[in-house]
């Protein structure tokens, strides 16, 4: 496996809600070009961990370093301004605007008017959103809204992409296309994907980080994790 430089690192990262430590002294490293999946049963702390990375939560302890910049406790827009593309668990789109305009606003943040228009057109083609280009996003189907959001992430041309459950609520076919898209994004960006859907993870991942009770339990390939008796007990046991 290619191991370039470290693009994202957490040291001793903790997030406590009252007495509950949702994330408990996590040391995590993401290498350049990597596509890492975070899995774990409900309440394992992966979404809280994710929110600490994106600035939506301010960690109670520890540090997050993105390409040598300490970002723990920074605002989300400051983290995004480093060139980080973020998609949250709940679809966050501009419901009252057209699909085109949603993506344009993402592209325009980084580029001049002319370039932003070209980028918007390209992104719409890339995500096959041509048919719904002028439709108001609030009226689109769930899967399409997720893609519009992915389109916004892609249009900003990030070098690091953080996705929280990108395939949630999608049909089988849509999930397949999303997996394809994620592999394509991964060609130019390192990625962290939080996901529940095992099949989906098999489609996209090489290394998987398993969270349990706020800590990293294992870090290995999906096959190794599903073969591991402890991991099966924790993950599949809880799910059943």
């Amino acid at each position: 496996m290619r191991r370039g430089e470290v693009v994202l690192e957490t040291r001793n990262l903790s997030m406590a809600f009252g007495g509950v430590r949702a994330v408990d002294r996590v040391d995590f490293t993401l290498w350049d070009g990597e596509l890492r999946c975070l899995i774990g049963p409900n309440g394992a702390g992966k979404s809280t961990f994710f929110k600490c990375l994106t600035g939506q939560l301010r960690p109670t302890e520890g540090d997050v370093v993105i390409r040598d910049v300490h970002v723990a406790g920074r605002e989300p827009h400051e983290i995004a301004a480093l060139g980080v593309g973020i998609k949250t668990q709940v679809p966050n789109v501009f419901d009252g605007l057209s699909a085109e305009e949603n993506i344009w606003i993402a592209a325009r943040r980084w580029h001049g008017a002319e370039r932003a228009r070209t980028l918007t057109r390209e992104t719409i083609e890339r995500l096959q959103l041509g048919e719904v280009r002028t439709r108001i996003v609030g009226t689109l189907a769930h899967g399409q809204r997720q893609w519009v959001e992915l389109g916004m992430v892609v249009a900003a041309d990030p070098w690091l992409v953080l996705l929280d459950e990108p395939a949630a609520g999608m049909t089988h076919e849509e999930t397949g296309r999303t997996a394809e898209l994620i592999r394509e994004i991964n060609r130019s960006a390192a990625m962290i994907v939080v996901e529940h859907d095992m099949q989906f993870i098999r489609m996209i991942s090489r290394t998987v980080t398993l969270f349990h009770e706020g800590r990293i339990l294992m870090e290995d390939s999906m096959d190794a994790i599903s073969a591991d008796p402890v991991a099966r007990e924790i993950y599949l046991g809880h799910r059943a």
Binding site: T54, Q56, E75, P76, H77, A80, A81, I86, K87, T88, N92, V93, F94, D95, G96, L97, E101, W104, I105, A106, R108, R109, W110, E149, M152, A156
Partner: peptide, 21 residues
């Protein structure tokens, strides 16, 4: 103006697109 409208629609998304809302 468009960013202001976007913030009206979804402030979190605007922030995640690196706009200081």
């Amino acid at each position: 103006g468009r960013v202001c409208v976007a913030i009206r629609e979804n402030e979190t998304r605007a922030e995640l697109l690196a706009y200081d809302t």
